[in-house]
Design a protein around this nucleic acid. Sequence first.
DNA 1: ACCGGTTCGTTCGAATTTGAACAACGCGCT
DNA 2: AGCGCGTTGTTCAAATTCGAACGAACCGGT
Lengths: 150, 150
Amino acid sequence: MTRTRWLDERERAAWRGFLEASHRVERALEQQLKEDAGLSHPQYEVLVRLADAPGRELRMTELARLLITSKSGLTYQIGQLEKRGHVRRRSCPTDVRGVFAQLTDQGYEALRQAAPGHVDAVRTALIDVLEPDELDVLARALGRVGHRLR
Amino acid sequence: MTRTRWLDERERAAWRGFLEASHRVERALEQQLKEDAGLSHPQYEVLVRLADAPGRELRMTELARLLITSKSGLTYQIGQLEKRGHVRRRSCPTDVRGVFAQLTDQGYEALRQAAPGHVDAVRTALIDVLEPDELDVLARALGRVGHRLR
DNA sequence: ACCGGTTCGTTCGAATTTGAACAACGCGCT
DNA sequence: AGCGCGTTGTTCAAATTCGAACGAACCGGT
């Protein structure tokens, strides 16, 4: 066990900046989505992932993995979205245990209506605040960060 | 109302990278802290902010602002930390409504013990994954992002 | 066909978070 | 001094999150 390598000025700035940015961006998006579309950010992400998937459906476990959430948490959110008719559950033909979460037409429509406001918010909060070169560095660096934590 | 400016490839990569990184890093830190120190990340941050403050104490509202959390949420967490003896409440002399949250010696000690493991985790998850120049860009860019959302 | 070890999704209880409502107080202006 | 408005911290109910436990089902090797 070696002595702790504390963060120097630059590292501390990067860490604090990352923390504050992620909290504030999350907060801003949450508020915008709830206000304009009646959706939480996790719920919106569910719709996005399903819309991008073949057949607009994904297995629960796979979806949970994509959303970086717990299985039980996803069960709850899918339940909520099912109540609203945005999502439907379909049992997997090849695996009795398996369950597909499938985006309904109504869910797709909800996503279509929510998307523009959300993208605007993402731009306002993050993207349009960055210079083009910063954008690339962010994508590469944070992509690596996310990748190494899988 | 102009037509929506959707995200192009680079922007999408930056956005997704940011989202995934923040979720995974948060998750990794939460787990490490809970496991090694019995503290949640929010709780750890409370201790840090108090330790850095003059007199090791801060007003509730000010602390909530620093932590980017709700006042009610802070009330809860301070209650938890008070139970453990890490924090004590002190009423403000110049404002009857005011309450100082003050770090106890025991709380300081808990922070001292938790800090090395936490810093290690921050390095592993984020800092040591970045190149020096990426570190600077991150600090500057995300610092701006956080600042504009205040 | 049959174990042993995984994997699947849900359920359950506990912990946490939030916003609204609230009571009490400070502050500036008349 | 008194009024009006903003602030302070807490309480409350509701929503959300997580991990552990669970029953059920899959899968590979025998």
